[in-house]
Design a protein around this nucleic acid. Structure first.
Lengths: 202, 202, 202, 202
DNA sequence: CAATAACCGAGACGGTACGTCGCGTCTTCGA
DNA sequence: TCGAAGACGCGACGTACCGTCTCGGTTATTG
């Protein structure tokens, strides 16, 4: 998932890379993934086609790095989940932020395109999961683990499943695209899930 | 979502349509959606390319109908959710069946390809949701509604959210493709979700 | 070259044949031979495609018969060459008539298309020559033979070559399409040729 | 009529252009003009279809340039008409050479196909006339003009018509394809025509 | 005066070729 | 020396017609 670009990138590379990433994000928003072409990216970026192929093997890889850039630049992704001691509040904050990011067209369209590509192509999918998704999910597991140790989550519950209980529905709604990702929705989600995770009164 | 074929299908249509559906399902399993071509479908079906284009506007539409056929023919989809009075048991049975279907390559590959196409193309996505997904989801809402009326689910809970709590994680795992859809997993899912939906003791 | 239609043509045949001939002449004038299609002929004639194929093996054959009809109906072709005793006058009259016919769009466009088809396809060409052209040319040979016997044309001259001296240049100009076929031109042609054919003073 | 290829032909153009010209001449001789396809030309030339379409708009244009190449390479066309002072001898020599060229299959078939295309399509026809035919015909006019000035041809005769008297019948025979273009024929032609053109004894 | 067979229009069918687009590779040429 | 520009072989696109093949629905005799 790391960029194929050497750390000692010359001025050339920097400039053209940046232009390619930008052009890719623009174009995928304008015409969608399936009509995104390497030729159009190169033309929009004012770059030779070969300059794209020199560093990326396919348009999927270009888009992958472009979205990665987007994540890193704009803090579009959750960096960490706070731990104020109030699990519900912490999760609500994070899910609200995630929902907001996912709803923003600047992130929504490219990410949706990339997700589609990953679903269609198992190899790319695995890259995306391990490179983008998994790091995020691990943050949830860590936070839930802390809550479990402090008694807010019943012991013995599989945290991996618990995590999916939170993120699965949100991702589902996002991918379906037929309902808005409101804060009310994410809050309700957290409440319902935490009722399920809460320790039994014994 | 309905088939483009007139109900009074002639001999012509029957034969070629069937061959096209079959060839599409075969090919999408063999080469994946992005390398699926109308030309290959026509060739495999022993049919002229124009015969495909006469009835479907794109390969996505062909695949959509092919998967639809698959659902209807093989009872690949849940027809109804039983109501034995035991909500947990009923949901576990249905989710187990769904997980099994989703795991079967015959259904998994085409459906995954179709899902990817629907995610990338909003118009197709809306068709798929309203034509395939929504009817299924309504069954869950109905069953959960019955449970709510009988006191197994707390009153006031938004059943649409409750539904997504069950199906979202399962869909998420399926789309990610990085973990098997076991019965243990679906059972755990139902248990955790029902703990969250259960009426408060007080 | 004869029509493939049985002489005991029923009312059906008559009607559709006539419509097909008419549609063919219209269309070839409108779009040219290469863009003339059997489907368009059938559509314009208000006739099923099979009705065309039932009686003609190709669009060239249809056009051939259509032009033949044209010749017969409108006396578009020379029926006979008069013999007033004055060879020059007779030939001038006939060549003028031929030039006028060839210049008329109603005859020019279909005939040109048919000629092109005959040049490109040797088999069709032979049919056209023996069916349409040769009968006409024989009239010239006969008239020139009469003149030869009456001493207006030098004995020993190959009449076939003499004929071509008259018709060749006219056909050439017509096919080239870059100069009008005026009466002045045909008259000049006859005069020059007859100077060549005239008996030597000895 | 000039080649669409820039004078500074690159290595690319040279190789593929040459192959396309060769393949076109081969194929048109083998299957005829109407069954000549751009796809077959490209395949035979070992070239992508787009490489043909990049430089020529239609198969007619390809054939046009291919025949042009043929003319220039093989001196298949008359470069000049000699002027030995003996008009009859000079014209016989040229017409014999022309007849021989026209009779050779290597030139006959492609040229016939091209002529047919030019007759059917007025625009192409005009190109062919002005680009290939006219330059040749002017040579005749010049030679005849010299003869006229030297008194071998009667003053006042329209040399354009005189020219057609020679070339028209030859072209006619060639296009009809029903009689061989022998030297005896061309010699007879010259003799008869020159009898017509000769100055009157007064 | 039905029935019945010939013939029709309509148009779907398996194909071939069209002319276009984009792929990923390769070459040229100017800065 | 590097990169934009873009030609190249290739292959799929979606369209137009080809010539063949059912389809029903009129005719226009025949039984």
């Amino acid at each position: 998932m790391s960029s194929n670009c050497a750390p000692s990138a010359t001025r050339y590379r920097r400039r053209s890379h940046h232009a390619i990433m930008g052009a890719t994000l623009e174009l995928v928003s304008e015409v969608g993934y399936s009509k995104l072409t390497v030729e159009a990216i190169a033309a929009r970026a004012g770059v030779g086609k070969q300059t794209v192929y020199r560093w990326w093997p396919s348009k999927a890889a270009v888009l992958r790095d472009a979205v990665l850039h987007l994540c890193q630049d704009a803090s579009g992704a959750v960096r960490d989940i706070p731990d104020t001691g109030d699990l519900a509040a912490d999760l609500k904050a994070v899910l609200r932020a995630t929902a907001d990011t996912m709803s923003h067209p600047r992130y929504d369209l490219p990410a949706r395109a990339l997700a589609a590509a990953g679903i269609a192509d198992a190899a790319l999918g695995a890259q995306l999961v391990s490179g983008i998704l998994e790091p995020q999910l691990r943050l949830y597991v860590r936070r839930l683990g802390a809550a479990q140790r402090s008694g807010q989550v019943e012991a013995g519950i599989d945290l991996r499943v618990a995590l999916e209980l939170l993120t699965g529905p949100l991702a589902f709604r996002w991918l379906m695209g037929d309902a808005p990702l409101t804060h009310a929705y994410t809050d309700t989600l957290v409440d319902l899930v935490l009722r399920g995770l809460a320790p039994r009164p014994s």
